[in-house]
Each structure stands twice: as structure tokens, then as C-alpha cells.
């Protein structure tokens, strides 16, 4: 299969920077996936082929890496990604109520994106802020000690 997309000069420059830090091209695989996802929002089959070609590994091998990690998105995501912690401390402190409220408010369950592309909702393992459970992240922002009131206010900040 021939790649339908190529990497942009900017993406290549960033990947080259990572390749220079490791003894072999393929060792930059995860960094390359992060870089392209940062620019394109997710990793399409075409993007995957382009990265694999650039790193001189097979697309299958790169896909086995891409699908292994929780935060490499192999499907398109919304403009904002909600990562709701569903691990034990948040379970004890009632994350299920927060989940219920998000479902009601946005009409999406785990793994789904709102029809307007505003939010994707994903479950996430322990966010490491257990003394302030329940917690979630939206994009790069952490929100803790969630309550029904604070959740509404937080969601309103994202468009």
C-alpha cells in the first residue's frame, strides 16, 4: 500500500529531533506518534503509513505500538477530550455519579463523541490525585474534587 499522506516538514523536523536522541530510528516510534497526533488530533491509517515509512519500520509493527498505548488515538476524537478517572479511589468517592451526569448532559457514553464534535469521553486509569477524588482531565487540564455543580461549570468552559 502506498501512503496517501506524507509528513509535513514541521512534523519531520520534530521527529528528526527525537531520532537524534536515540541509537536507532525505530526507537523514536512513540515520540513520532505523539508528534503527529499533536498536529492532526489522531493517527489515521494514512498517517500511520507515513510515520512507519519515515522510521523505516512496517506499518503493522507501528500499529502494534500505536494500539498498545491508551492515548494514541486511532480514531478521530472531538475538539476536547474528557478523560474521566474510573479507578479505585474515584470509585469509592463516587465517579459513577459524575459519569451519569456527563452522559445526561452531553448524551455520550465512554468511547463516544458528541455529534457536534465538541467532546469525546474516555475512561481513564488512576490520574494520581486520589486525595482529591473524583477527578478528570480535559485536554491538558486537571479538575479535582468534582461535584455536580463544579462539573457543569467546567464543561461550560470548553467549546
Amino acid at each position: 500500500m502506498i501512503a496517501q499522506e506524507t509528513l509535513t516538514p514541521e512534523e519531520m523536523a520534530e521527529i528528526d529531533h527525537e531520532i537524534a536522541l536515540v541509537p536507532m530510528r525505530r526507537a523514536a516510534a512513540i515520540e513520532a506518534l505523539k508528534i503527529v497526533q499533536h498536529h492532526r488530533g489522531w493517527i489515521s491509517d494514512d498517517s500511520l503509513q507515513a510515520i512507519a515509512g519515515y522510521l523505516e519500520i512496517s506499518p503493522e509493527e507501528l500499529d502494534s505500538v500505536a494500539t498498545f498505548y491508551n492515548l494514541v488515538f486511532r480514531r478521530p476524537v472531538g475538539r476536547n477530550v474528557i478523560l474521566l478517572c474510573d479507578s479505585i479511589s474515584c470509585y469509592v468517592m463516587g465517579y459513577e455519579k459524575i459519569y451519569g451526569q456527563i452522559r445526561e448532559r452531553l448524551g455520550i457514553s465512554f468511547g463516544q463523541t458528541t455529534p457536534d464534535g465538541r467532546f469525546t469521553l474516555l475512561p481513564n486509569a488512576c490520574l494520581g490525585t486520589c486525595d482529591h477524588a473524583p477527578a478528570l482531565m480535559i485536554n491538558n487540564e486537571l479538575f479535582r474534587d468534582l461535584t455536580e455543580e463544579s462539573l457543569d461549570e467546567i464543561l461550560d468552559r470548553y467549546h
Binding site: 479511589s89 486509569a125 490525585t129 486525595d131
Partner: peptide
Amino acid sequence: MEPGTFKDR
């Protein structure tokens, strides 16, 4: 990433 662990942060 051990659930319930937040000390290194």
C-alpha cells in the same frame, strides 16, 4: 500509575 498512588506527583 498504581491506582490509589499519588506520592511521586
